[in-house]
Write a protein that binds this DNA or RNA. Sequence first.
DNA 1: GTCTATAGGAGGATAGAC
DNA 2: GTCTATCCTCCTATAGAC
Lengths: 188, 188
Amino acid sequence: MDDARSRLIESAQDLLWERGYTGTSPKAIQERAGAGQGSMYHHFTGKSDLARAAIRRTADELVPRSRAHLDGPGSPLARIQAYLRAERDVLRGCRIGRLVQDQEVVGDPELRQPIDDVFSSAIARLARVLREGQEAGEVRADVDPEQVAVTLMAVIQGGYVLARAHQDEARFAAAVEGALSLVAAVRP
Amino acid sequence: MDDARSRLIESAQDLLWERGYTGTSPKAIQERAGAGQGSMYHHFTGKSDLARAAIRRTADELVPRSRAHLDGPGSPLARIQAYLRAERDVLRGCRIGRLVQDQEVVGDPELRQPIDDVFSSAIARLARVLREGQEAGEVRADVDPEQVAVTLMAVIQGGYVLARAHQDEARFAAAVEGALSLVAAVRP
DNA sequence: GTCTATAGGAGGATAGAC
DNA sequence: GTCTATCCTCCTATAGAC
């Protein structure tokens, strides 16, 4: 689709990623979309309504991505490695994680829910694969898979933060590699 | 000190924590500080100048906090546990980590530097304590302390993100406990 | 040092014509 | 569906009086 409504949503997705909710103005969205005021307020009741659509769309795009790595082929540990090492636009930050800083986003259940869903579904899948890995003897056996799944998701999100602070993707890579080294079963 | 200049900095610290750089207006800072326009523009050249002072002050307050736990008494592993489990205003987020989402902050070296320093100094101390822990047999020996130090810092920052997304401090705790379980040496 | 006045621009939205 | 006009508030800063 490349009608005005879709272009507005896409532009909102980009700008929310770049500047967050507070930093994104209706005007900027319209300009990037090549649409006018009237067009935007015809399709959406206002900024938050458009943001809802944009965040839902971004969430819908991200879930399959983690699914592709974690439910893909390969040994459990290999799938976890693939997910953590997947190519990311590290210095631009996480398009969904960055939004939880905005008061307006966290305060509006309709804006927050899709974000939480992305994390929760990835964590659930990570936990399952970790458990498989334990059964296969690839993953350290004496840890709680549910807990470690949250840890790994946090490493990714925190990796973004540290990389941006340091302005260096290597910080993200270090966080991830450190986590992977900890998850692997101890060599006998 | 409780002169206008200091009150302005304190108010800016609070608002930057709550709303980020973009979401914080000079006017709001002035109101919270009980100071007028003239006062603020007398002491600071503008918003970014005041933000620089506020961020530096916040950074100066946070560094000793990690130092207290990591350079404190106790076994290496106990110190790492103490740092990761330290009381935090989890749902309000990290007062320093939240700022790296702002384009204006990351783009201004004077704003970004103090933030990076907080992380880098904590990571360096974590690495040192991890190494001590390895020598003491408390910490898993087959991992790179420098890398794992970054991982642990990422867990903290990511823990904030996940907790805010889920609106539940337990997410932070799970991330931290998972990390601690991974760091500990495998029981023989 | 602090106050008030002033100012151009952006933010967010509504109204009615086409 | 989209355009233009209009509105009021907030943003950030400057100027000059006190």
